[in-house]
């Protein structure tokens, strides 16, 4: 069976690192709302864990960008490149994701419009988390109390949205019958040619052309 590489090893490690840190931040952050768990000792520990998670959440993407600035730039560029086709995706998406005829969805590039939206959302969410978190961590007592109060509100609102986005990401990656190769591809980095053609037609065409070129030049 023809296999196409979709995620590099570095990208996959990065994905799972961020996933782990996200879960860690969710748990250590939510524990503050549960008085019978946040006793003196555990409460302090969870607050340290939240800080450690925050440092990794900020540090990991920066390290990634240092090691592979081209990939990092491409990641941002793809998410911010929008065109007329995105409107067509939006029109076709409800039927497509509710199990309608897959042919109604126009061929997509390496990432589709939904993935672009997701990238924008998680990037924006991370920015909100990091700025409000930084102020609450390092500028408590320095900024006016009202600033702190609204950072807390924003941090919590962003959290509510982030959990919804996480549910969506998890559902599409793990449970959705149309994305049946998604979770595996984040494990071994590959999807079948058939999956690539049906889900990311434009990208598959490019990949196939390159492969042919390489194939013909090597003979």
């Amino acid at each position: 069976m023809e296999l196409v590489e979709r995620y590099t090893k570095r990208a996959r490690w990065f994905h799972w690192l961020i996933a782990a840190v996200f879960i860690e931040l969710v748990i250590s952050g939510m524990l503050i709302f549960i008085p019978w768990i946040t006793s003196d000792t555990i409460g302090s520990v969870t607050r340290i864990l939240h800080r450690v998670g925050a440092v990794i959440l900020v540090g990991a993407p920066l390290l990634y960008a240092i090691f592979d600035w081209r990939g990092a730039w491409e990641f941002i560029r793809e998410g911010l490149t929008w065109g007329k086709e995105d409107l067509e995706w939006l029109k076709a998406a409800p039927g497509y994701y509710f199990g309608g005829d897959p042919r109604m969805m126009p061929p997509q590039g390496y990432i589709n419009t939904g993935m672009k939206l997701y990238r924008v959302a998680i990037f924006g969410g991370a920015v909100f988390f990091v700025i409000t978190g930084f102020i609450m961590w390092f500028l408590k007592g320095i900024v006016p109390a009202a600033v702190f109060q609204w950072c807390l509100v924003l941090h919590d609102v962003t959290f509510i949205v982030a959990i919804c986005m996480f549910f969506l990401h998890f559902q599409l990656g793990v449970f959705h019958p149309r994305m049946d190769e998604s979770i595996l591809s984040m494990y071994d980095g590959k999807v079948s040619g058939m999956y690539a053609r049906s889900h990311h037609g434009k990208w598959y065409e490019k990949v196939a052309k390159n492969n042919n070129k390489e194939g013909s030049s090597s003979t």
Binding site: F98, I160, C164, F167, P177, R178
Partner: peptide
């Protein structure tokens, strides 16, 4: 919000599965 979103996504999986 969380239960509503989770329920909606679950419903989506079920509908998509049957139609596919």
């Amino acid at each position: 919000a969380w239960p509503v979103v989770a329920a909606g996504l679950a419903l989506n999986v079920v509908v998509a599965w049957f139609r596919q």
